[in-house]
Every structure is written in structure tokens, then in C-alpha cells.
Design a protein around this nucleic acid. Sequence first.
DNA 1: TAGATTGTTAATCGATTAACAATC
DNA 2: TAGATTGTTAATCGATTAACAATC
Lengths: 215, 215
Amino acid sequence: MDEKSISKAVIRRLPRYYRYLGELLEEGVERISSNELSSKMHVTASQIRQDLNNFGGFGQQGYGYNVPYLYAEIGKILGLDRTHHIIIIGAGNLGQALANYVKFEKRGFKVVGIFDINPVLKGISIRGNEIRMMDELPEFLRENDVQIATLTLPKAYAEETANLLVENGIKAIWNFAHLDLAVPEDVIVENVHLSESLMRLSYNLNRYNTEHKKE
Amino acid sequence: MDEKSISKAVIRRLPRYYRYLGELLEEGVERISSNELSSKMHVTASQIRQDLNNFGGFGQQGYGYNVPYLYAEIGKILGLDRTHHIIIIGAGNLGQALANYVKFEKRGFKVVGIFDINPVLKGISIRGNEIRMMDELPEFLRENDVQIATLTLPKAYAEETANLLVENGIKAIWNFAHLDLAVPEDVIVENVHLSESLMRLSYNLNRYNTEHKKE
DNA sequence: TAGATTGTTAATCGATTAACAATC
DNA sequence: TAGATTGTTAATCGATTAACAATC
């Protein structure tokens, strides 16, 4: 059955709500109205109420939202109430940086394997994970429960590696390679295209300069 | 004067057009119609024509778009026709990974300085840049032409560092710290929130599983 | 009960798609 | 000239904002 599906725009905002609620929680704030949250986050109160109501009535008239409750609920929606096992394919600078990033594990994203094709890297340990060679991957996936594969490898290898992952049952790819992966429709790809981010920054910088020159 | 401003949605797509055109260029393709590009990129031809027409009439009726020309024009729009000097604040794993990433330089983004507060890192050289201590930053910015500052440091230091950068004339921040920076309106911030990206992936994974369980 | 604030419907705004006249 | 394809206007669709009745 199709639930009425939730727009990407809403999903994009969800982690940001989660972050602000987490901060409020740390400050010991018990309750917050859509209006207060609105002025903190610089979005409209209306949008906050609409967004949250996609998932259920988390608030209470005359009271607002209970911070610990709403925080936990959004966490559940985002799937942060359970542990995800991640492997990293490509143990270059970026792959190693991600493997070293401690915060992910606090959110339930645990790196359980790191792979590369470069024999020089074989056996090097990063936070308890020894870098493995790619030929060990299929067996590893058979023997371990892995939900997410991270691609931090050169563009040229990305497509074939994605295929290999899909063949071995991976359903979610966190893709840092700068290309659009062609995968079956039941496989989820989340792209992080750093160079595109940098280009947008450059565009805005450029635009700003141009506009102000003209005045 | 306000030019009729271009929507963020269009800007988000621009680097992707640039990438596809770059690939066509490498393949030696001379011309392409919005229709052909549309089926390659999985967007509507109408959207392509609308998007490009925000910036000018780059095509020709009956012919389509000239690939080398359009590629160069989009490059100009994105500001890729000139060199941007970047500094990196925070020489941890991620900062070093970015400093090592060779591709950025090919697009005109040149790292000219790397800074940290950890004395252990002082003097370590990354692709020709020695890591400097933060107290050298103001002088460095006075003596060098820097357009973009990258923040790859713990959240706790991000706000004060952003202020320091702004005080010293920086107008564009590429922010990897997981918070919303409060900066004057003439300062551009481009956020890369990796943990939010991971949460979106987790949401979609979760959603997929749930939907299919119900059937 | 009165006041506050949600949940939700209706109105507005903006972005995408369709259609087609202009023109190479 | 005829055919192709853009540039652009109009129609549609979806997302955001406003308004307010429901209700705690």
C-alpha cells in the first residue's frame, strides 16, 4: 500500500529539526511551541507544524511540543533508534577521515569494515577495523549484516563497485564519487557531491561580486 | 539593482549540467538537443531549456546547444573561469582529506593555507602547505588574497572561528561543522552537513523496509 | 472557564511541465 | 523551403504560508 508519500523537502528539513531539538534537550528545555522554534530556526511556525503533522500529532493544543518526546519521535522517523552497520569502500584520505569520525557511531552508524584495492593499505587498522582487500568483500557481506556501503573511491571504479555491492545484497549506498550511479530502484543512493557544493559556493560568491559592482 | 534573482533549485542543478556537458565534451560530442540531454540526465527537456534561459539564450533553434560553448558558459556562470584561493581551518582527518584532494585544484580551487590549534600539527606539510597555528591567521589573511575559508573543525570552535574569519575580511565559508553559522548577510555560507546526509539515507532505508513489510 | 497553541483547511506563491510560435 | 529545436508563454502541479476552528 502506498502511504501518502512525504516530500523530499520535508525529509531534508527533518535532520535539522532533530539537531535543534537535541540542543534544546541538552539545555534542559521541557517544552517548545512552534512559534518559539520558528524564531530559533528561521523558518515559519506554519511550516514546522505542517512538517511534523506529516508523521503524526506530536504536539498538544495550548501546550506546544514536549521536547524529549518530539526529539525521540523524530529520531525514530529517521531510523536513529537502531544501529546501522556501514562499510567503507575506498580507504583514501576521505574514506579514512569518515572511518575516523567518531560522531557517526554515537548516532548509531557503526563502521564494521573498510576496503581498498591498494595492497599497501592491507591490514592497516583504523579505529579497530583493519583495511581489507576488495576480493574479501563478497564473503564479508555474506557473513556480516551490513546496511550501508560508503563509496569513497575514484569515479572510474564507482559504477562497477556499486554493481558488485548490489549483487551482494547492499540496499543503501552513501556515494561520494562524482557521478550518478545506476542502480535498481530498490537500492537507495544518497549522494555527497563535494565539488558541486563548492561550485554553488563559487556561484554565489561570483554573483554577489557582480551584483554589487553594477550598483 | 536587483536582477531578477535565480532560484536555488536552478543553482542546485547547474553543477550537474556542467558535469554532463564535461563528459560529452570528453567524448567529443559537438552538439546536443535539450531532448537528448533530457534522456541522459533524467530530467525534462523543458526544465533544461527553462534553466539555461535564466542565464541567456545559449542554444539555437533547429540545432540545439553547442557542447563546448555551453560547457564554457556554465563554467563562467559558476565562476570556474577564475582561480579561488581557499584556506582550511581544522587540520583533522577531514581537513587533511580536503587539502589532499587534487581535483579541486583542477577546477580552480587552490588551497593556499591550512590552520589548526594543535601544536603537534605545526609545520606538517600537506601538498606543499605547512600547517600553521591559528594565531598566524589574521596576518596571513592580510598578506594573501583568500576568497574561501573551509571549516573542518569541532562544532564548539566553529562560531568563534567564523567570527574571526569575517572580522578579517572573509566573505565565503564552506562549513563542515554541524551547526548554522550566524554571519553578516554579505557573507556566504555553504553547508556540508554529512551527518544530515547520513540521516536522510537512514530515513529512506527505514521507510523502504517499513513500506514493504506492510504489503 | 479563558488563554494558548495545535492540527488542518484554504489561499498564495513558486517551480515544473506542456505547448507552440519564433527562427535557425 | 521544410524540418528541427529553441525560447517563452500559459497551464499545472506542489510546496509554503495564512487563517482559524478544535481542543488542551
